[in-house]
Amino acid sequence: MRWMACELHSHTDHSDGRQSLQELARGARALGFDCIALTDHNTMTGLKDRESIEQETGMTIISGMEWTTFYGHMVTIGLTEFVDWRPAGPGDIDRGIEQVHAHGGIAGMAHPYRIGSPMCTGCFWEFEIQDWNKLDYIEVWSGTFPSIKTDNARAFRLWTERLNEGFRIAATSGRDWHVQEQTETPLSVTYLLLDEAEGSVTEQAVRALAAGRASVTMGPLVTVELRSASAAYGIGDCVPEQDRTERYEAVVNIDFHVRAGLWEYPEAGYTLVLMSNSGSIGEQQASLAQSDYRFAIPGDAWRWVRAELKGTVRGVRTMIAFTNAIYASAE
């Protein structure tokens, strides 16, 4: 298995972007990405030269489309063919998600709390989700330097609330990338853990996100593993009832070498926090000199666990990275 650096929300001149797919792929490669999802608004025509551009740039390009409606924007990824967004009304988005799944894709809420109409038609999510089990992920970080934005903080809380309610929903970041331009503003990356079992890299990436095998960061890659006496569980896994025990060891790894030279936080003063449905269950100071951190946690204190890395960026104390969850079986 391997981690792949992904940008999961991007646009070209086939919708409202000001870049070609080739320019997007080259730009993503220069920023240390391995993969991009092309999610133009309500069209998939921008993918027509995908294979040749993948060969030229070495970039994996995932098919996608951003459903852009009056009631919200929904990013769909991994579609094998166009799925019509127009029938989706405010009370029946579940049916739309089912259609996306039927055509090999997954679906996520895009920037759910961004300012909506009339500033941005449909950017604020107003669809009524009847069954949260159907939704695959929530884009909790949108744009550049996403961790300091109030709308993203609301999206992050929404994700956490759904985890607390027992839903297994992944969290991602997305730049909502429209144009090639130089920026010194921190960029986020969604790392997906590919199983490499079968199928194309695109199929592996979609499986990874659907399973919640994802870690989000503006810098180092943070991963977490939960160990019992008999087994080890990674991000996206669910600890079965028969392996519930009185105590676990959580092992968090911080890889400070990913995308080397493309980010630097010299005054970060890193703090690593192990979070669960009951709040913080462990905290340690972290540094570039150490990669592995271990936490002993009681078995009955959590229904889900994730790792968060905090630090000072541009003079602001903020979250720098977080993992998706490891779950405990409710059965």
Rank of each mutant, 00 (worst) to 15 (best):
Y113N: 06
H178Y: 14
L158Y: 03
V201N: 05
V206C: 08
K149Q: 11
G143D: 00
K149P: 02
I129E: 05
F167Q: 04
W177A: 05
R168F: 02
L192S: 08
A110C: 13
R175G: 12
A197E: 15
P118L: 05
R168T: 13
T121L: 12
T144Q: 06
Q182E: 13
E126K: 13
I106H: 05
N164H: 04
L193P: 01
R162Q: 08
N133I: 02
Q204P: 08
D195Y: 12
A155I: 05
G104Q: 09
N164Q: 12
G116Q: 04
R175H: 15
I106A: 15
Q182G: 12
E203S: 15
L209M: 15
Q130A: 04
F124E: 08
A170S: 15
E196D: 14
L209S: 07
Y191V: 03
L163F: 01
Y191I: 07
P118V: 10
Q130K: 11
T190P: 03
A153K: 10
A197R: 14
A110L: 04
T160E: 02
D151A: 00
C120W: 00
Q182P: 05
P146G: 05
C120Y: 03
T172Q: 01
G166K: 08
G105R: 01
E203A: 15
G108M: 08
D176G: 15
E184A: 03
N164C: 12
N164T: 11
Y191D: 09
G143N: 00
R154H: 12
Y191N: 07
G212D: 11
R207V: 14
E184K: 11
P112G: 06
Y137H: 12
E198R: 15
T160G: 03
P186S: 00
W177I: 06
S188P: 04
L135M: 15
G116P: 12
S173W: 04
K134F: 00
V189Y: 10
I106T: 15
E126Q: 12
V189D: 03
A107S: 08
K134Y: 06
V206M: 09
W132T: 00
R154N: 08
R154C: 08
S200F: 13
G122N: 03
R168V: 09
A153W: 02
